Simulated scan of single mutants.
Amino acid sequence: MQLVYVFDAYCGWSHGFSGTLNEVASRHPALPVQVVSGGLFTGSRRVPIREFGYVQGSNAQIAELTGAEFGEGYERLIADGSFVMDSEAAARGVAALRQAAPAHAAKLAAALQRAFYVDGLSLSDPATYRKVAEEAGLDADAVVTAFEGAEARVAATADFHLSASLGVTGFPTLLAVDGDSVTPVARGHATADEVDRRLAALRTP
């Protein structure tokens, strides 16, 4: 069995789920976690953030429910409403980080979300990936080169297709995959204890 975490780096609920994912991963070190970008803001949804009027209210709800932090850097970035969340660029960054350290993909995804939601760094900016890579002890030059390369674009598209093929319709979604069996163990929000109970039920014959 493995866990497949389908998220979007520009999704506030995914940011809120980071703590749960890290706790689940630490409780089950032998359970691999595959991180997949879902592609929330692509195509016609790639517009200035002001067009999503629910963002501030939603973030307040996420913070209250999960304890997730929304920092001053983030508030400054989105203050005038002109910032465009581009999930394709973010997915390329996830792919570049994932390639550099596959076993740490979940922690790197969380670090990327902190870069945006706490520090207010654009996930379209190569400098953001340099910072995240350096802080994780990775080869920052290699990560930035990968982010800007063709392979990351292919990987991002593959992630979006995989998300759709798994039937994921909202982010974050955590799936337990065992052979051909795919079972959601969390959607939107869940505690680590809730995920544990659902995993235990799957393992009970």
Score class of each variant (00 low, 15 high):
residue 59 N to A: 01
residue 60 A to C: 04
residue 60 A to L: 13
residue 61 Q to S: 11
residue 61 Q to G: 02
residue 61 Q to D: 14
residue 61 Q to E: 15
residue 62 I to D: 10
residue 62 I to N: 11
residue 62 I to M: 09
residue 63 A to H: 03
residue 65 L to I: 14
residue 66 T to M: 06
residue 68 A to S: 12
residue 68 A to L: 13
residue 69 E to K: 11
residue 69 E to R: 14
residue 69 E to P: 00
residue 70 F to A: 08
residue 71 G to F: 07
residue 71 G to V: 03
residue 71 G to H: 07
residue 72 E to R: 12
residue 73 G to W: 04
residue 74 Y to G: 09
residue 74 Y to E: 08
residue 75 E to W: 12
residue 76 R to Y: 04
residue 76 R to N: 08
residue 77 L to A: 08
residue 78 I to R: 00
residue 79 A to M: 05
residue 81 G to E: 04
residue 81 G to S: 04
residue 85 M to L: 12
residue 86 D to P: 06
residue 86 D to Y: 09
residue 86 D to G: 07
residue 88 E to K: 07
residue 88 E to D: 03
residue 89 A to H: 01
residue 92 R to K: 12
residue 92 R to D: 02
residue 93 G to L: 03
residue 93 G to V: 04
residue 94 V to A: 14
residue 95 A to T: 08
residue 95 A to L: 07
residue 96 A to W: 12
residue 97 L to S: 02
residue 97 L to I: 01
residue 97 L to G: 05
residue 98 R to F: 06
residue 99 Q to S: 13
residue 100 A to D: 01
residue 101 A to P: 06
residue 102 P to N: 12
residue 103 A to Q: 15
residue 103 A to H: 13
residue 103 A to D: 15
residue 104 H to M: 05
residue 104 H to I: 00
residue 105 A to H: 10
residue 107 K to Y: 04
residue 107 K to N: 11
residue 108 L to Y: 01
residue 108 L to P: 01
residue 111 A to L: 03
residue 112 L to I: 11
residue 112 L to V: 15
residue 117 Y to H: 10
residue 117 Y to I: 15
residue 119 D to N: 07
residue 119 D to F: 07
residue 120 G to N: 04
residue 121 L to I: 00
residue 122 S to G: 15
residue 122 S to Y: 06
residue 123 L to R: 05
residue 125 D to H: 10
residue 126 P to C: 06
residue 127 A to V: 13
residue 128 T to A: 05
residue 129 Y to D: 07
residue 130 R to C: 10
residue 131 K to R: 14
residue 131 K to G: 02
residue 132 V to D: 03
residue 132 V to T: 03
residue 133 A to Y: 08
residue 134 E to A: 15
residue 134 E to G: 14
residue 135 E to C: 09
residue 135 E to K: 14
residue 138 L to C: 03
residue 138 L to T: 01
residue 138 L to I: 00
residue 139 D to M: 02
residue 140 A to Q: 11
residue 141 D to C: 09
residue 141 D to E: 14
residue 141 D to P: 09
residue 143 V to K: 10
residue 143 V to M: 09
residue 144 V to P: 10
residue 144 V to L: 13
residue 144 V to Y: 09
residue 144 V to F: 09
residue 145 T to H: 05
residue 145 T to F: 00
residue 146 A to S: 14
residue 146 A to H: 05
residue 146 A to C: 08
residue 146 A to P: 06
residue 148 E to D: 09
residue 150 A to Q: 13
residue 150 A to R: 12
residue 150 A to L: 06
